Simulated scan of single mutants.
Amino acid sequence: MFEVLELSDRYKKVLTIVVEDYIRHAEPVGSRTVAKRLKPPLSPATVRNIMADLEELGLLSQPHVSAGRVPTEEGFRYYVENLLEAEPLSEKARETIERAFESEEIEDLSELLRITSRLLSHMTGFPSVVSAPKIGSERLLKLDFVPLGRGLVLVVAVTEAGIVVNRLLKIPASVSPEALERLAQYLNQKLPRLTLEEARDELLREIEAERKFLDTLFEELEEGEGPSEPIVEGISRLLDVPEFKDVERLKELLAAFEEKNIFLKIIERCLGSHGVQVLIGAETGLGAPRNLSAVASPYYRDKCPMGGLAVIGPMRMDYSKVVPVVDYTSRIVSHLLDKFLPRT
Results as ranks from 00 to 15, higher is better:
190 K>W: 13
176 S>L: 08
166 N>D: 05
180 L>P: 03
120 L>N: 06
184 A>Y: 05
185 Q>L: 14
207 I>S: 05
130 V>Q: 07
143 L>I: 14
134 K>D: 00
146 V>F: 13
115 I>Q: 03
99 R>L: 15
164 V>F: 04
199 A>D: 06
167 R>D: 11
134 K>I: 00
211 R>E: 15
146 V>M: 11
125 G>I: 08
168 L>W: 02
94 R>K: 15
144 D>I: 04
139 R>V: 06
162 G>K: 05
185 Q>I: 11
202 E>K: 13
127 P>T: 09
127 P>F: 13
192 P>G: 02
141 L>K: 14
204 L>K: 12
187 L>I: 14
106 I>V: 09
127 P>I: 10
196 L>K: 01
201 D>C: 02
112 L>A: 07
182 R>H: 14
190 K>S: 11
209 A>S: 10
210 E>G: 00
113 L>A: 04
149 G>M: 14
98 E>K: 08
152 L>M: 12
175 V>K: 07
108 D>I: 02
185 Q>H: 13
208 E>G: 10
103 S>P: 03
131 S>D: 09
110 S>V: 09
209 A>C: 01
94 R>Y: 07
132 A>E: 11
99 R>T: 12
160 E>I: 04
153 V>G: 03
94 R>W: 07
185 Q>M: 13
200 R>E: 15
105 E>L: 14
142 K>R: 14
183 L>K: 09
153 V>W: 03
138 E>N: 11
142 K>M: 08
211 R>Q: 14
128 S>D: 02
131 S>T: 13
99 R>W: 12
160 E>A: 03
177 P>K: 10
114 R>A: 11
123 M>G: 01
100 A>F: 11
101 F>E: 10
157 A>D: 06
147 P>F: 08
204 L>P: 05
191 L>D: 08
200 R>G: 04
165 V>A: 08
95 E>T: 02
92 K>N: 15
166 N>V: 00
195 T>V: 06
96 T>R: 10
147 P>Q: 08
177 P>F: 06
198 E>Y: 04
147 P>L: 09
118 R>K: 07
95 E>D: 05
211 R>I: 10
143 L>W: 06
111 E>C: 00
134 K>W: 00
169 L>P: 03
97 I>C: 13
178 E>F: 12
191 L>Q: 08
130 V>D: 06
204 L>A: 09
137 S>I: 10
98 E>D: 12
89 L>V: 09
119 L>N: 02
122 H>C: 00
133 P>M: 01
179 A>Q: 15
157 A>E: 10
209 A>G: 03
100 A>L: 09
159 T>R: 03
136 G>E: 12
140 L>P: 04
107 E>Q: 12
166 N>G: 01
213 F>D: 04
149 G>F: 15
175 V>A: 09
169 L>A: 04
146 V>S: 10
130 V>W: 05
97 I>D: 14
100 A>I: 10
125 G>D: 07
153 V>M: 05
116 T>M: 08
107 E>M: 09
124 T>Y: 07
